[in-house]
């Protein structure tokens, strides 16, 4: 069973890629843009859109036929002057949120976008608390150790060694 799985998946993948590589007739990308801004938009969009068939590749990096076709659609829409939002809408109306590498901000992704910020704030709070707790006695100790430190420095003449990691 394991053996079958091990053989099946790579073969399927290989087949899919064979299948995609074999088609020729339908890609008529001219790849000329009116200006650099359009070209940049095109490059950014094909970087942010996911190839629906591949194992985690964007449209830019995929050799699959569906990726080539979708790149062509993006190119067509960019040259027609469609906005990035409109192009992304076109894509996720047909392929779902799966095709967007940047998840849309919606109730089901609030946790995704907001939790890291919350974690950061918790982290800063933890740091604050620990720094607070640890410095409460520090002033008294400081004076003593500074004197000691100066004494040590004088004796050994190694003022900078103390700061090695």
């Amino acid at each position: 069973m394991l053996a079958v799985a091990n053989l099946l998946i790579p073969s399927l993948l290989g087949l899919m890629i064979l299948v995609s590589g074999a088609s020729v007739a339908n890609t008529v990308e001219d790849l000329t843009f009116a200006d650099d801004a359009s070209r940049d938009r095109y490059q950014n969009l094909i970087d942010e859109l996911r190839c629906p068939q591949c194992l985690n590749t964007n449209l830019a990096g995929s050799d699959a036929m569906i990726a080539a076709n979708l790149r062509r659609e993006v190119y067509r829409m960019v040259t027609l002057g469609e906005t990035d939002e409109a192009i992304k809408s076109f894509m996720y109306e047909r392929y779902g949120d799966f095709i967007l590498y940047r998840p849309r901000l919606m109730p089901s992704t609030w946790a995704l976008w907001l939790l890291p910020g919350v974690l950061l704030m918790i982290g800063i709070w933890v740091w604050w608390v620990m720094a607070r707790l640890s410095s409460s006695d520090s002033d008294d100790e400081m004076q003593m150790s500074e004197t000691d430190l100066a004494e040590v420095e004088r004796l050994l003449g190694e003022s900078h060694r103390a700061n090695d990691t």
């Binding site: 007739a25 036929m65 659609e73 047909r94 392929y95 779902g96």
Partner: peptide, 15 residues
């Protein structure tokens, strides 16, 4: 569907 446009409209990603 020579250029695959209908397939894209259907959300097809392979055959």
């Amino acid at each position: 569907d020579a250029d695959g446009r209908l397939a894209i409209d259907l959300g097809v990603y392979g055959a």
